[in-house]
Design a protein around this nucleic acid. Structure first.
Length: 552
RNA sequence: GGCUCGUUGGUGAAAUGGUUAACACAUUGCCCUCUCAAGGCAACAUUCACGGGUUCAAAUCCCGUACGAGUCACCA
């Protein structure tokens, strides 16, 4: 029996040939230097920070070069497939605005190089596998999983290299007639690539970030098609898909580096041009004294849910990711504070070659800066959108007190050096809650400082509200009145004078305003008192004074 | 165990043979100040995992050691 006959026996219904597909998916007509890249997740888990980094780098690479960014759903492992994973991937990409130009989702296909879901490409893979069998470069293998385990154990015990190669490739040289007999007999089989590599020979390939790397040739007869669902393995799908979709650059995690010899040989077997590789280093996590790979199970910040729930602005997260991904980015960002991130030209050479810790403090800082540059109205809208999804109580309150909330968020916001006190939307409420009467009444834990005598505080407040407060005062007028009252009551209005002779006064302006501040908010740490008083207005201040009288 | 990658301060890192090891975050202190935040100023690696070598000169080049990581599935 010839190789061609064996190929026909295995794939009787496959009529298209590789050259048919070559014609169907011609070279992309793009300008010089345009990069074609992909985000190719497998829906076996939820999108995590490592995926995010890969997707972001791909997106930037495509956008900044005028190329194409497409999404390929690598669903060949159907046993481990997780419900909702692919939806969450699309949701997350959309949330961060890194949308693919070509994709296939919920029955809708965009792009001319699809299908973009691997399970729908089965005929294509089969055509290429059939071709390999017909030229003798692939063969059916009938090793059972028990036999495989046996071989592995033997190799590991006798300290030999693990894998199906050389004499362990039992079915490599079985005659076609014998193979055909077993197939007709209904035996399960996998298709293995017939490797011609020599482990003792080296080849060199260039990784765009790590540089030239020398590796031994592959000599393992890797499976290229699985026996159960007849889908290809990752290695084979990578070669066929990235070739047919005309990918120019493959960005993937460092864990793929050791598979390069396999991919190298596979590309060579078809005479395909190899894409350029960018292997990204892992994102690590400091756990006590040890540093380890970030874990989806142990580290909440590993999963992209975390950042949405906490309410970090999408662009802040992207900047934090790019800061880790490319050492140039931070400098570029300080020089181009307003430019969209995708205008940054990502250089693989500037990528860290060692794993980096994802620093949540750094994210907080980036995020504070982002939020401080938003207008109060814009912040309010983002805050409200977040609350609608994650905190119903906050959502209701800020809708009820919309104007007050915006006024509060606007305190010391406009201007060259805005306040930077919110790192994400979920932290806003803990710094604004006293603005809302119903929250304020809930528990009154006054945090007074030097002046904590009830009579004195009441006296200060009554005096101030009855004889000094005027809602139309400017900040300067307001402060002058405070100082005036303060002096009348025996406190130092001038800090220098106070520091020189503290014994001459009952206290100073700071003590004085703290008393007012705490009475009105219960907190000794708030933004500008002048603004807070104006937002509350005289009636609510009087009400809070009454409540204070009854509760302190 | 084989193969491969890596190792600069608490974190991200710059510097690719030339002389005080950038910058950002974090931390600490001071200043400013009605508190807080912000802002300003300053401190924080006598040293670049360790040991050799090359050189007038090394974090930077070479060799070795240690440690860390990845991978060695019909998982991606």
């Amino acid at each position: 029996m010839t190789n061609q006959e064996l190929a026909d026996l295995i794939f009787p219904n496959i009529t298209k040939t590789p050259s048919d597909y070559e014609a169907m998916y011609p070279d992309r007509n793009l300008s010089e230097g345009a990069k074609v890249v992909r985000f190719a997740p497998s829906p076996t888990g939820f999108m995590h920070i490592g995926n995010m980094m890969s997707a972001t780098i791909n997106y930037v690479l495509a956008r900044s070069s005028g190329g194409v960014f497409y999404l390929r759903n690598e669903d060949t492992d159907q046993a481990r497939s997780v419900e909702g994973a692919i939806e969450f991937i699309y949701h997350t990409l959309n949330h961060y605005g890194i949308n693919p130009q070509e994709y296939e989702f919920k029955g809708k296909t965009v792009g001319n190089y699809g299908p973009y879901i691997q399970s729908e490409r089965i005929d294509i893979y089969h055509a290429y596998i059939k071709y390999l069998i017909s030229i003798g470069k692939a063969y059916p293998c009938f090793l059972t999983s028990e036999e495989l385990t046996e071989i592995r154990e033997y190799q590991s015990k006798s300290k030999k290299r693990i894998g199906i190669y050389g004499r362990y490739a039992k079915f490599r040289d079985v005659s076609n007639d014998e193979a055909a007999r077993r197939i007709k007999n209904g035996e399960k089989f996998t298709i293995r690539f017939r490797s011609e590599g020599d482990f003792n020979k080296k080849f060199v390939f260039e990784d765009l970030t790590k540089g030239k790397i020398e590796m031994p040739e592959n000599d393992i007869d890797v499976p290229i098609m699985k026996s159960e669902n007849l889908l290809p393995t990752y290695h084979f799908a990578h070669v066929v898909d990235d070739h047919l979709m005309r990918t120019t650059h493959v960005v993937r995690g460092e864990e793929w580096m050791s598979s390069v010899p396999i991919h190298y040989e596979l590309f060579k077997a078809f005479s395909f041009k190899m894409p350029k590789y960018i292997h990204t280093s892992l994102i690590l996590k400091k756990d006590g004294d040890t540093i380890r790979k970030i874990s989806k199970r142990k580290d909440p910040e590993a999963l992209m849910f975390f950042y949405e729930e906490k309410g970090y602005p999408a662009l802040a997260v992207i900047d934090a990711v790019l800061t880790i991904a490319n050492s140039n980015f931070e400098e570029w960002r300080t020089n181009n504070p307003l430019k969209p991130f995708y205008e940054f030209s990502f250089s693989p050479k500037k990528m860290s070659s060692s794993g980096a810790l994802f620093d949540l403090d750094k994210l907080d800082n980036i995020s504070k800066n982002y939020i401080s540059k938003m207008s109060a109205e814009e912040l309010f809208e983002q805050y409200r959108e977040w609350a609608k999804k994650y905190d119903q109580r906050v959502y209701e309150l800020i809708n009820k007190y919309k104007d007050d909330t915006i006024l509060f968020l606007n305190i010391e916001r406009e201007g060259k050096k805005p306040r930077k006190d919110y790192e994400n939307y979920s932290s806003i409420f803990s710094k604004t809650w006293y603005l809302y009467d119903e929250e304020w009444n809930r528990e009154l834990k006054y945090d007074f400082g030097k002046i904590n005598n009830k009579e004195e505080i009441v006296k200060i407040m009554e005096e101030y509200l009855n004889n000094y407060y005027n809602k139309d005062d400017t900040e300067e007028e307001w402060f002058n009145k405070i100082k005036e009252l303060c002096e009348d009551m025996g406190y130092a209005a001038n800090m220098k004078e106070y520091k020189e002779n503290p014994e001459k006064f009952k206290g100073n302006v700071a003590d004085f305003t703290t008393a007012i501040r705490v009475l009105l908010t219960t907190s000794s740490m708030t933004p500008n008192l002048y603004d807070i008083m104006n937002i509350l207005g005289k009636d609510r201040m009087l009400k809070r004074l009454e409540i204070f009288k009854n509760n302190y």
